[in-house]
Amino acid sequence: MEQEGEVWVYIQHQGKDVVEPSLEVLGKACELAAALKVSVAGILAGEKVDVLAEKVLMYGAQKVYVLQSRHLEAYSPVIYAKALCKLIRSKRPAIFLTAATLQGRDLAPRIASALRVGLTADCTDLKIGSYTDHKTRQEYNNILLQIRPAWGGNIIATIVSPQTRPQMATIREGIMKMPPQVRSSRGEIMHIPPDVQAGDIKTTVLKRILTGRRVNLKAAGIIVAGGAGMGTKDNFDLLRQLAHALGGEVAATRAAVDAGFIDHEYQVGQTGISVRPKLYIACGISGAVQHLAGMQESGKIIAVNTDPDAPIFSVAHYGIIGDAKDVVPKLINTYRHLSH
């Protein structure tokens, strides 16, 4: 008999490796599966993906389902959704998660629509809990609680899909912790030939401009971020110097990006990157919810702002009420002095 009610994670891959956001989701899925006492499985789809299965097991999956076909060589939503829906219909997992990457957010809604199940976008946390329907008073236990900001980050909503299976969610990148990698893995790798044809590929790639993952802010242990309060591009350079001195990276708010101080790819927040470095130094940043959404999980936060009422201080561990143009050079000089 097939075990029903597993927790599944779609494992995205790129350039012969699995992508980090999928592994972050796998880490969370392991917690959920443990709470539900079911297995956690990774789902790989592609042309030659069996080589990645071992790695998925090493990051905590107990099973890997491999959908391998030459027709799945390149990601394309229609054919991928078809292959995955078929597998979901036959194995009936309780939960199906994908990272909220561009691909995850392209694919998941297509699957949810075909299966007529609920889907919650861009969750920042997941839990197992219970839910009582206000109208029918019916109680549902062991339900996936899908937690996400909404309304431009002004509210946090907990969403459930009590009656349909699988319960589906996409998970924001950079929020869940990467699970530890174990040296040797035990687990099942199951090859399931997908029932797809060449005619299911509806998009043809004509050209590709690869820019890669340009800045790797997520991997940075120390981030020095600047906002509109830095005033000028030249002042913003002070932050580059501080980041350099501390061995960190620079980042910015949307207002700083809009002002032309730095490129969009350095933007932290709801419409930028989510980060959780050991240390986040916020200079001239007011602390709008959309910015906080991307950095409030940081280990330690230092805020430098002239306005003592700036909301950034409400998430800060250390607050310096002062002019960033004076404080930053002091930080650079004093750090150089102390670290010698």
């Binding site: 199940v117 329907d133 002004n154 509210i155 909503a157 409400s314 250390y318 607050g319 002019d323």
Partner: peptide, 22 residues
Amino acid sequence: PTRVQKIESVVLAGKNFKKIAP
């Protein structure tokens, strides 16, 4: 199929930060 179980306004943690002289 989805239901909103709960909505919370974003209230900032309001941690007591340590004040550092500039």
